[in-house]
């Protein structure tokens, strides 16, 4: 049996723009998500996250490549996949506001063939899970953002999905609700549900995910556990420095190169915020000359510096900054 519940193989997706040109939203991406794991998908706006999620939600077909979910090829078997997946999009949409929470769940459970006692029990269980039992008979339009979001979660779990897709599920939730939500997700994964989710909250992604994929401009730029992503960068040297009077990439490169010459070369300028520059540098001799480095720190205008593991935020920016 295939150990992957979600498998994307060289999947591309293009959209026709109004002027007739093709816009490539996904470019030959390949991604595997193991059964019962939580996989975080991160990337800037327009990177291709939502397109990926739409394809996996069966709302969009890829232009090329193969998508397999629970071992079934998606493109020609949409309905076979639909019974076992569900999705939750962040925000307040995806619900009937003029119906009560219970009626919403009745409606959506009917779409997944739940009936009779089984349906009632499931709705009761989910209302309890998302703590909406007391207000289950109130119209959704009277709910707060957080309550609507919790109802969305209940809706997404109606069919006991084996694959759950979450697109920015905690957007708009307060800290406590987000924590509760994360607990539900962990519980589901522990019980065998495979979860792929997107989020802009990197702390949350690191906290929840077994594996993380970074997507940028329609391409997967890194994938693995948080540790693996770190060591990918850490194999080289990651320098975080506070440098005064450095205004651009060129000046930064000049500054570093002046001291380290061939031994240390700046490969990629990551970001400059105020007087802080973060850089990926690599050692040509794989060993850092401490004396040279101290001299560099003293003689250059570096006020602070550190060499070590980058945070997920730094990894993210490293991969997604042009």
């Amino acid at each position: 049996m295939n150990e992957y519940m979600i498998n994307l193989d060289k999947v591309s997706r293009t959209y026709k723009e109004k002027n007739g040109t093709d816009f490539v939203a996904l470019n030959q991406i390949s991604l595997n998500v193991k059964k019962g794991t939580i996989h975080g998908l991160i990337g800037p706006n327009g990177a291709g996250k939502s397109t990926t999620m739409k394809i996996l939600s069966t709302l969009l077909l890829p232009s090329s490549g193969t998508v397999t979910m629970k071992g079934i090829e998606l493109q020609s078997n949409l309905n076979a996949v639909r019974q076992d997946i569900n999705f939750i999009y962040g925000g307040e949409r995806d619900l009937y506001w003029r119906l009560t929470a219970r009626e919403n769940l009745e409606y959506f459970s009917a779409l997944y063939s739940l009936k009779g006692v089984e349906q009632k029990e499931k709705i009761k269980e989910l209302l309890e899970l998302v703590q909406l039992t007391d207000v289950a008979n109130k119209k959704v339009e009277t709910y707060s953002k957080g309550m609507k979001q919790r109802l969305q979660i209940a809706r997404g779990l109606l069919n006991n999905p084996r694959i759950l897709l979450l697109d920015e599920p905690t957007i708009g939730l307060d800290r406590q609700s987000a924590e509760e939500f994360k607990n539900i997700i962990r519980h589901l994964a522990a019980n065998g549900t495979t979860i792929l989710f997107t989020s802009h909250y990197l702390e949350e992604v690191e906290d929840l995910s077994d594996e993380i994929t970074i997507i940028s401009r329609g391409e997967i730029v890194a994938s693995g556990t948080a540790q693996e992503l770190r060591s990918n960068i850490g194999k080289e040297l990651y320098v975080h420095a506070v440098v005064e009077n450095v205004v651009n990439r060129k000046q930064a490169i000049t500054l570093f190169s002046r001291y380290f010459g061939d031994e240390l070369s700046v490969e990629k300028y990551v970001e400059r915020t105020g007087n802080v520059i973060e850089m990926k540098v690599s050692l040509s001799n794989k060993k850092l000359d401490d004396v040279k480095l101290s001299s560099f720190v003293q003689n250059s205008k570096i006020r602070e510096w550190k060499i070590g593991s980058p945070s997920l935020d730094e990894i993210y920016r490293y991969y997604t900054t042009v």
Binding site: N79, R82, Q83, Y89, G91, R93, D94, F108
Partner: peptide, 18 residues
């Protein structure tokens, strides 16, 4: 506009029945 069309479309039931 409410976004529920997607949830209906992606369910296993044929759209025209819903």
């Amino acid at each position: 506009r409410m976004g529920v069309l997607g949830s209906n479309f992606a369910s296993p039931v044929k759209f025209q029945w819903i």
